[in-house]
Amino acid sequence: MADLSPPKPIAAGPPAGASSAVPRIPPSIAGGEMEVAFDIAGFSLWYGANQALFDVDIRIPTRAVTAIIGPSGCGKSTFLRALNRMHELTPGTRIAGRLRLFGEDLYAAAIDPVVVRRRVGMVFQKSNPFPTMSIADNVLVGLRLNGVSDRAFLRDRLEASLRMAALWDEVKDHLSRPGISLSGGQQQRLCIARALAVQPEVLLMDEPCSALDPIATAKIEELINELRASFTVIIVTHNMQQAARVSNRTAFFYLGKLVEYDQTRTIFMNPSNSQTEAYVAGRFG
């Protein structure tokens, strides 16, 4: 029997009365009351007989960046892919539990995974612009293949998406060049623009910087910081400093379990679990 009660707001940040003694935190880090995007409870996932996720309970806020950290094989990528049902590409997967996006059960029988993925976009570890397509076609492919043909609208989305991905100024004069002619960091931003073009509600990022050099990484981080204002961003990263820099909240997964989930500040400065503390300091994992 599903729990039908409305999602309760999670107590986030310091209690209201204590605010005068608490340092002023830059708005990019501030927690406070949150609107829940993903409301997940008792979520488990199996690959055949292997259980990859155990009973995950988590509420992920909207208009914020949530980082998912943990050692390799801890289930963080699996978790991310479960958020837009991408794990279903692997045959023999099975899930249990509740996974709602803005109150809607993404695993309900009537929900088409294709529609889920239109709402929950994804950017991958390796940048993957379509090799047969130009920069512009890459950005617009999601719209075009979903039946959008209004030229003015497409032109607007092209520019808006590339601007949001901080790529417009670099490519506006050669939009018809192949997408794969760009540098690695630009390709990744092109992929972000492509994901943003279909106007998803959530953007999942699976180690988006792990193949990039520090400068390209910094650019993507700036971009994530910008996206915070209007999107729900969930990023899997192996780079603790990146998680600390860009995220409002951090979830630490270990051996398929959600060990700790809190404001990034708390996870890094005063985690309640000693494994979390050791992991974020780079002592294990």
Binding site: N84, M86, L89, V114, V115, V116, R117, R118, R119, G121, M122, V123, F124, K126, N128, F130, P131, V141, G142, L145, N146, C191, R194, A195, V198, L204
Partner: peptide, 18 residues
Amino acid sequence: PQGYREAGLALGIARWKI
């Protein structure tokens, strides 16, 4: 590469179109 199929799926494109 599998990445192209996944990228397409993540854009909410139907499988046969991808």
